[in-house]
């Protein structure tokens, strides 16, 4: 993929606007008619910003199973609409159920891929950019930390899954319900890990004089240029487009 301009990367702020736009849309809307085009737009943005879409999915592959399971469960347990698959007169999957299942998968997909876009900026630039927008430094710092820890959390979840199976738990042979409950166990070490790291980090950061001065000075200044504004306009169009499509039902 070639870049149209020689200048370095996009400003992290314009990426953040785009990512926030995409992921909030994925949270707000819950039906495929909007989520599907949104997913497509997310993929295009990620490709354009050279965030490896496939890469982030491949790295998530072991967890994709969990998401798929969530989708299937939603499809099977949501009633309503016309039955699609019937077994002995009982509707197993209905149109509404399928729609819910597909939506869940699309939402997670959009959030993962768009979050991947943020990891193409370096955390320092994210903090700097947000600070220039007068966002309190502590808050900016937290955003940057979250972005930084995203890949680490993925790695941790995978290690944990490995460790659990290595206790002789044959995940592939457990009944579906037990298997899904088992995935819940991954959350405990994940959350504990995040909390421990946050504690450790706030300590080390304070010891290094974080917040020692009310204002920060920096050698680096980030400048938004035309391309950045263009990116933000695209984000704005996506958001308003989704709302227009939502309030005007009918063929797109």
């Amino acid at each position: 993929m070639t870049t149209p301009f020689v200048k370095g990367d996009y400003d992290p702020r314009s990426k953040l606007v785009l990512v926030l736009g995409l992921s909030s849309l994925a949270v707000v809307f819950d039906y495929p008619r909007i989520l599907l085009p949104l997913a497509l737009a997310t993929v295009l943005c990620a490709l354009y910003l050279r965030s490896g879409v496939l890469g982030s999915l491949v790295r998530m592959r072991r967890l994709l199973w969990v998401f798929l399971a969530m989708g299937i469960i939603q499809s099977v347990f949501t009633r309503g609409g016309q039955p699609l698959v019937e077994l002995a007169g009982v509707a197993l999957v209905t149109t509404t159920g399928l729609e819910r299942g597909v939506s869940i998968i699309l939402r997670i997909f959009i959030i993962l891929v768009s979050a991947g876009i943020m990891t193409t900026s370096n955390p320092r630039d994210i903090i700097q950019g947000l600070y220039q927008w007068r966002i309190p430094y502590e808050l900016a710092f937290m955003v940057a930390v979250a972005v930084r820890f995203l890949p680490l959390m993925r790695e941790e979840a995978e290690d944990t899954l490995t460790a659990l199976q290595l206790r002789g738990v044959r995940l592939e042979e457990l009944p579906l319900r037990t298997r899904i409950r088992t995935y819940g166990y991954l959350l405990t070490p994940l959350i504990a890990g995040v909390l421990a790291r946050a504690r450790q980090m706030s300590l080390s950061v304070e010891m290094r004089g974080f917040r020692a001065y009310p204002r920060r000075t920096s050698h680096r200044t980030l400048v938004l240029d035309g391309r950045d504004y263009l990116l933000m306009i695209i984000a704005l169009l996506l958001v308003s487009g989704a709302f227009v499509a939502h309030f005007r039902p009918g063929p797109l």
Binding site: T160, A163, R167, R170, L186, P189
Partner: peptide, 19 residues
């Protein structure tokens, strides 16, 4: 899972093997 029935593995990092 089948490997886990043949041997036990203690990871270097204890935090990731507590559930």
């Amino acid at each position: 899972g089948r490997i886990g029935q043949r041997l036990g593995y203690l990871f270097q990092e204890p935090d990731r093997q507590i559930f």
